[in-house]
Design a protein around this nucleic acid. Sequence first.
RNA 1: GCCGCCGUGGCGGAAUUGGUAGACGCGCCGGACUUAAAAUCCGUUGACCGCAAGGUCGUCCCGGUUCGAUUCCGGGCGGCGGCACCA
Length: 858
Amino acid sequence: MSDERRKPFPFDEFEPQWQKRWLDEKTYRTPGPGDADFDASKPKYYVLDMFPYPSGAGLHVGHPEGYTATDIIGRFKRMNGFNVLHPMGWDAFGLPAEQYAIKTGQHPRITTEANITNFRRQLQALGFAYDWDREVNTTDPKYVRWTQWIFLQLYASYFNEETQKAAPVSELEAQGKTPEEIDNLRLAFIHEAPVNWSPDLGTVLANEEIEEWKAKGHTVERRPLRQWMLRITKYAQRLIDELEPLNWPESIKSLQRNWIGRSEGAEVHFDIQGHEVTVFTTRPDTLFGATYMVLAPEHALVSEITTPEQKETVETYIKKCASKSDMERGDLNKDKSGVPTGAFATNPVNGEQIPVWIADYVMMGYGTGAIMAVPAHDERDYEFATKFELPIVQVVQGSDRGTQSLPSSGIGTAINSGFLDGLKTKEAKKKIIHWLEENNKGAKKIQFKLRDWLFSRQRYWGEPFPLLWDKKTGQHAAIPESELPLLQPEMEDFKPTGDPRGPLIKATDWINYSDQYTRETNTMPQWAGSCWYYLRYCDPSNREAFISKGAENYFMDGGVDLYVGGKEHAVLHLLYSRFWHKVLNDLGHVSTNEPFQRYFAPGLIMGEDGQKMSKSLGNVVSPDDVVDLYGADALRLYEMFMGPLEQVKPWQMKGVEGVSRFLAKVWRVANEQNQEGQWILSSKLTQGSDCLPPSTNQPGEAANSPLLKVLHETIKKVGEDIEKLRFNTAISQMMVCTNAFTAAEKVPIDLLTTFLKVLNPFAPHLTEEINKRLGSTDLLSEGTWPEFDEQYLVEDEIEIVVQVNGKVRAKLKVSADSTKEQLEDLAKADENVQGHTDGKTIRKVIVVPGRLVNIVAN
RNA sequence: GCCGCCGUGGCGGAAUUGGUAGACGCGCCGGACUUAAAAUCCGUUGACCGCAAGGUCGUCCCGGUUCGAUUCCGGGCGGCGGCACCA
């Protein structure tokens, strides 16, 4: 253990030197519009990583998986003449820093800075070609300023239903709308609703965040509070439609579509003793089968319609439900519960009086919080009706599932349904919707699962809302843009108070804006900063705007070309970001309607034990340790060689050793050790091409040089594989090529240099070092990607397979231009083939030139 | 329950407009070099039968299409991820 492990090549010496040089010389700086050295005619390529939350634990080997992939693409595109934008930054607001601050008393800014310094060091030790001049940090006041500015754009906008676009609320003012009416249309609005309040965290959480924090041992309860919301639901249809043309994995698209949850159906109005109640259904064709109605316990009308006899029962039931969270209600789905209100509703289609129940299987948050129950054709209604002995009337026939629980998409024929009888489900739906619309009893309706985005948090370490409250009128207002950024006040104590207005409520001087106004004390969620960081990278130090028109037009033309990052953000971050981007697009601040043209999610890297890496299991691998033992290039190579990028795969230290051996082999193609153990240039190296046939211009002869052939195959394959993000097969091809170099008597330097260019995006340190030792003063990464020459790829002798009845019986070396007839004759002449055809009649011979001959005989 | 993805050697994985299954790497075994070890290099390595030539089986299981199926179709089984009383 104490023995220093012998390094197979001196990566520990040259890797830090190259990293220092790249940083000092700003090798990977990306010139943008406005820079003196910017060349507008050069095409851009924007390759983006999801920026990390700089935790105290530092990087684990999962981080560099995606980062290495983008680095290879970026370096490759750079060598192919693109002006590559490949930036990195920090998603640095967040609860862990705040909680650590509460524990230690240290300001979150200090721990955040320290963590960033550590993350940056770790990333730089891997040799990524980031333009560090473009680094962004969501907690930097210069960044916060623009996050708040974008929020103010949302605040000052509404969704124009006609254009399906955001527009300034000033349009509404011009239309004479009242302030209240306008507030009800703003994209950022105040809403009082039951929210997920965590007493021990002292904050409200988004629905999507509950599970995460519960898993960490925190409690979450339902509590009605006034909160800022963002009206993302207005964009539901566009978020689905505009997803379609994007180059994203189909599975991720489907995840988003699912989340948005579009359902087509109808709204139907029922009368309950003078009160109109609207339900949503995807099966309006089953209206004749509605034998009872159910309201969510929280439905506003419950108290009004409940009969005196049922009052006590209903109130008890509502109390019981209120004590349960959404989750608990969901967990108890084995057993339906509910009570009758005593009221009756009139089925608009046949005038039948049907009982109105309340039950917690109906959710207030979806649709209208009320349903028509059709027990013959809905599993849940069927279960409920059976339990409480409510009538079941079949109205669709022909379902293969029998009378109960027809699938909602099921096809059948309407029966017991008056004027719908005999119609197929599809036609019945159309006809009933038409009837409902004619008779003012309902209308076609598209319903989404997506809810508006709960945007406020009760935290210290987040962007304060740039908003004020009028002390007298209670009306809210924006602070002037000139006062941005609005930073949190310096506070000694940011512990949660239990006051749902958050810890900022304690900063009494700060809150008191003027005699007229007091400040909003909520802060924004961590998503805010990550919603638009990809835009800031394009123009990170702009003081006049969040991004300049010029930078936006150039770098965001067609959107981010490739976005790589974890699937865990496939729904929320990517949805929120798309939403903000669309609003900015509608308002004319950006020129595209989608931010990320191509998206790719790398698979998780598991621990050596096959389990997810976690501190508690002790199976976390730190890149620092891997770099110490094998070097940065070996880590990069291994991460890419493990398997397909998208796949979940376990870490294996032995595998790192394997690629380390490969890199050492490359090193030894160019270097050998002398008596003193120093690395000197290999004696196999030659200036000319004296290992090749005399005239390499002759295709046939050139192809006889195995080295030249494999090299050109490698150029071709690696280039193609990089475009397809198939790095594992690219690396295996480079291993094949290296083995050919190792086997060669002589190694022509020009061929070796060509190979080094191909390997450079993967292993930049090693290749630059060898190139330098070979006497070059240029950087490979600033050179151009080699072109392959088809003439070296042509084979003149190939192997074809001879099958008899589909089984391989012989392999023949034949000339590549053999005709079908020649192949057939050669195949039939083979001894072993004859052994299998003797005594049989040849029925058919299939010849696939260049591949095989299959003789069918019996 | 619904949606999506995936099942290939001891292991990570390659090969799909249907055409030699197991590239490349790890591990194992054998050999060379060495006083020895490490490092490096060479060779073997899906299973079974055979001295060999060769043969039989083999890509989760069952069936189908085809001259030919890891690849396409139908039906199962198993695993992973997401959603989940969404009307």
